[in-house]
């Protein structure tokens, strides 16, 4: 039953995602969390593109997210670009950094791939740390002011939390719709071939490494866009955005929700942030309980929360 329903739902997944985003802020106990769910959800969805769809475990996604955040922040602050131009630059920066990291890291496999991405992301961190004249160094990028944004002639108050939520939600929904199309495209089919059976894909004439690099670049575009949205939202870009902890977080969110599924990473981000907020009410050590839930999930729901649900069939 559930599986049948979910299969039908998959056909309209972008629409469903949009509906979900519409009601999300009214469902959450903490409204401020809703925007974070959007941003981290998009980040996790971008990460899933490489981990869930072409089987590459990246530990360097903070560089893509952070790169996007810095690019957007710098575009607003130093280049004086309009907000949408700044966001576009964030997306391009994420894709560009992903292109460089992807080209270098896809020469290796497995744990070596994870290590190379981690090392390269750390390089990006130190670059931002050292270039304090441009990036603000350890203080992060400060002083971004964005109170009003114009949307097709509409002057929207970006300070109002709900307006801000819906502006960001619209962009995230558009990004999810684009992702849905990419997954359904011929390139999406080729990514599936690589994930399902690399040897057979190769025997069918698919250049597996090129597919992986391209998937990494796409992943970087989504991650960079998420980073750019965070820069708009927070009006600062903390150096921690580039920290490897951020890379680890997105891995956890993706696994928690279900790698290789469309909605999984988003659900993972939602559950992760909710837990974090709930635990923070009673204790400042949120890492421990969240870690326990994560481990339980990996052990008992190896396909993740959404992944397990989507596969569930009555006996």
């Amino acid at each position: 039953m559930i599986a049948v329903f979910l299969t039908r739902a998959a056909r309209h997944r972008a629409l469903l995602a949009a509906l979900f985003l519409l009601v999300l802020p009214f469902l959450l106990p903490f409204r401020a969390t809703a925007v974070n769910v959007l941003i981290d959800g998009l980040f996790a969805v971008g990460f899933n593109l490489v981990y869930g769809y072409v089987g590459l475990l990246s530990f360097g996604h903070a560089a893509l997210f952070g790169g996007g955040a810095y690019a957007t922040g710098l575009a607003l602050l130093r280049l004086g670009l309009p907000w949408y131009g700044a966001l576009a630059l964030g997306l391009v920066a994420g894709a560009g950094i992903a292109g460089v990291i992807g080209l270098l890291a896809t020469r290796t496999r497995g744990i070596y791939f994870a290590m190379v991405t981690l090392a390269l992301a750390e390089c990006v961190y130190y670059l931002a740390y050292q270039a304090s004249g441009v990036t603000g160094g350890e203080n992060g990028l400060r002083g971004i002011v964005l109170t009003k944004i114009d949307l097709f002639g509409l002057d929207l108050d970006f300070v109002d939390p709900l307006t801000r939520y819906f502006v960001i939600a619209t962009i995230v929904a558009l990004a999810l719709a684009a992702l849905s199309r990419i997954l359904a495209s011929p390139f999406g089919a080729v990514m599936e071939m690589v994930r399902e059976n690399e040897a057979r894909a190769r025997a069918s004439g698919v250049d597996v490494r090129a597919v992986r690099v391209l998937a990494f670049v796409l992943s970087g575009a989504f991650s960079g866009l998420a980073g750019g949205l965070q820069a708009l939202h927070l009006a600062i870009v903390p150096i921690e955005t580039l920290d490897y902890g951020n890379s680890g977080m997105v891995v956890m969110m993706c696994l928690l929700g279900g790698a290789g599924t469309f909605f999984g990473p988003f659900i993972g981000a939602l559950v992760f942030l909710l837990l974090q907020n709930l635990v923070a009410l009673v204790s400042s050590h949120w890492q421990l309980p969240v870690g326990v839930v994560f481990m339980a999930c990996v052990l008992f729901l190896p396909r993740g929360i959404w992944g397990q649900l989507a596969r569930w069939r009555p006996a």
């Binding site: 199309r181 990419i182 359904a184 495209s185 011929p186 390139f187 999406g188 089919a189 080729v190 071939m193 894909a201 069918s204 004439g205 698919v206 597919v211 796409l218």
Partner: peptide
């Protein structure tokens, strides 16, 4: 996959 690989936008 023999003929069309790099289309990201059309439906497969």
């Amino acid at each position: 996959a023999r003929e069309i690989r790099l289309n990201f936008w059309r439906s497969r």
